[in-house]
């Protein structure tokens, strides 16, 4: 566990040593602000909640999270530092977990910096802060889910653009899996798949959190989703580390 934290610490310092952190956080906050206040009609709704804010979070993450993860392994491969990292006395699992943890903490920092929304809504009215808190938990889990997908995609290639595009594509599939467009199409042709699609949809699970429902089922879903992709990540690194 100590090694996981050491690797995560190095990674996290790396974000802040380069413009990556600054650009990401600024763009994330600007996008969230613009979407919530303009497209989401935060003021016009006249309701003291953060529903418009949470509605857009997964879509903003869909675009921005793969931008964090694309470099996780692809850059290590390009620079050759993967050879250095994996010949240190650590296991591959520790490296995978450390990198994921750093990216996740980074997303958490970005989320924490959206606190002015919470302050604003609390000044304007009396929101249910419990619902807001569970919305944040859900947001963090969505970030984790997309990060784990993106990290695995990054392990596939040394090309960051490919890693980015693959991650967006795969995350998109899991995001929209429960949407009527998908499920209607599937239930007409293969009803079994429609049911599976509904179960694995990230957005569906996330919406429970934004309504203030934190259920064990959803937590287990996210834990196993992230676990699966991190396992895949470790397998990919093991198989293709030297390619």
């Amino acid at each position: 566990m100590r090694n996981v934290f050491i690797i995560a610490g190095r990674e996290l310092a790396g974000y802040f040593a380069t413009p990556v952190a600054c650009v990401f956080i600024v763009i994330f906050l600007v996008l969230q602000g613009a979407l919530t206040f303009n497209l989401g009609g935060f003021f016009d709704r006249g309701q003291a909640d953060l529903n418009p804010f949470f509605t857009f979070i997964p879509w903003v993450f869909l675009l921005l999270v793969p931008a964090i993860t694309m470099r996780l392994w692809a850059e290590e491969r390009r620079l050759g530092t993967i050879e250095l990292l994996l010949t240190l006395p650590i296991t591959q699992t520790q490296a995978v977990l450390g990198k994921f943890l750093a990216a996740w903490v980074f997303c958490a920092i970005a989320l924490v910096l959206t606190f002015p929304f919470v302050i604003t809504v609390n000044i304007l009215g009396n929101p249910d802060n419990g619902v807001i808190a569970s919305g944040y938990v859900g947001s963090l889990l969505v970030a984790g889910a997309f990060l784990s997908v993106g990290a695995a995609m990054s392990a596939l290639t040394k090309n960051q653009v490919i890693a980015f595009v693959l991650a967006v594509a795969v995350c998109f599939v899991f995001a929209v899996a429960s949407y009527p467009v998908v499920t209607d199409f599937l239930s007409r042709n293969t009803p079994v798949l429609a049911e599976i699609a509904r179960r694995i949809a990230v957005i569906d699970r996330y919406q429970d959190f934004t309504r203030g429902i934190v259920s064990v089922r959803d937590l287990i879903f996210f834990a196993s989703f992230i676990g699966f992709w991190l396992f895949l990540n470790a397998v990919l690194i093991e198989q293709r580390k030297a390619d």
Partner: peptide, 10 residues
């Protein structure tokens, strides 16, 4: 390792 790779930003 070949080429002595190191993390450039550190």
């Amino acid at each position: 390792p070949e080429g002595a790779p190191t993390y450039p930003e550190m």
